[in-house]
Write a protein that binds this DNA or RNA. Sequence first.
DNA 1: CTTCCGACCGAATCGGGATTCGGTAGCTGC
DNA 2: GCAGCTACCGAATCCCGATTCGGTCGGAAG
Lengths: 181, 181
Amino acid sequence: MFAEHGYEGASVQQIAAQAGVVASVVYDHFGAKRELYLELLRQHGQALLDRSVRPDPNASPADLLRHNVDAFYRFVEADPFLWRVVFRDPPADPEIAAAHREVHGAAGEAIAALIASVRPDAPLVDGVHRDHAAAMLAEGVKAVNNGLAAWWFEHRDVPREHVVAVAETLLWSGLRRVADS
Amino acid sequence: MFAEHGYEGASVQQIAAQAGVVASVVYDHFGAKRELYLELLRQHGQALLDRSVRPDPNASPADLLRHNVDAFYRFVEADPFLWRVVFRDPPADPEIAAAHREVHGAAGEAIAALIASVRPDAPLVDGVHRDHAAAMLAEGVKAVNNGLAAWWFEHRDVPREHVVAVAETLLWSGLRRVADS
DNA sequence: CTTCCGACCGAATCGGGATTCGGTAGCTGC
DNA sequence: GCAGCTACCGAATCCCGATTCGGTCGGAAG
């Protein structure tokens, strides 16, 4: 429900109905709608991070990317709603916004660390502060994966391998590879 | 208001207050909250598309990307809220969701056409249906730009040039360039 | 058999947000 | 000075969604 309609868009009644019970039952298990949402956000965020951002000191950068991208889309395929909850725009509620920042901050840092570890010495992007570059690249990776996952969600008939292939090509080689004859 | 708090998160009262008037005045100018939002979404979506997706038959692919990426971030810098409205997750309301799909569909197709025009003959990504590849690459470009814009929004002190540099590097050359010594 | 507990339900409360409507002040053109 | 339009306001309505509470039922434990 949250994945599909967002926090404000999903009413407690709908959520309860989906579970085959009545709204007040939700309050026998969770203090408030917010608690329920926070629980889901944290759990799913952690699961997503655990399964799709794994460092591997022995792998080449290319393999590292390949494995992590592949893992991400397997995860999305296994349960699209789970991913959607984590990547939705957060509601205005300050507490939820904070939790959202925390989850995404952790993911961003993990990815940034992975990227930065590949070249511990040289600048990542000419003229850009190293930490900023790492953070932005991580953000870009997250964004591409989220964007393609969203596209895939609307085109379920496309096999995972194709989505993974495009994600890898774009992230690893960029559009240059596409443009070159 | 919509940019900051989302459709459901921004109350008509808040919107009116921001304009220095009272809620009912909004209804003297717009039939409903939805109408106001649709107006903004369409206008801003169009403006964003017009200014940051320009084909140029004489430019090289690299220049094409550079120009369009640069234009996008200039646009975002000029008015961050405008971009945010367009890229926010749409609310549950079916009519708004449809308008949202329309705006993003048009942008996606324009970008996809730009990408596809570079190599009218060969496949874009091995083993992936051409149209799907173009659509996904376009989605990826949009996603990267949106993701970096969002990051930038939280780090206003970083100069536009740096963000543009990272966006260009990632989109054009991919992480391979970053990883290579 | 009785007690206790956990899951469930229905009705009621409560507040906030969208929307409506009748009314007012100022400016425009005559 | 007056009719008419425009932008504005305040109060009232209406509805829906979150949350509360007291009560029922079936099974587990003694």
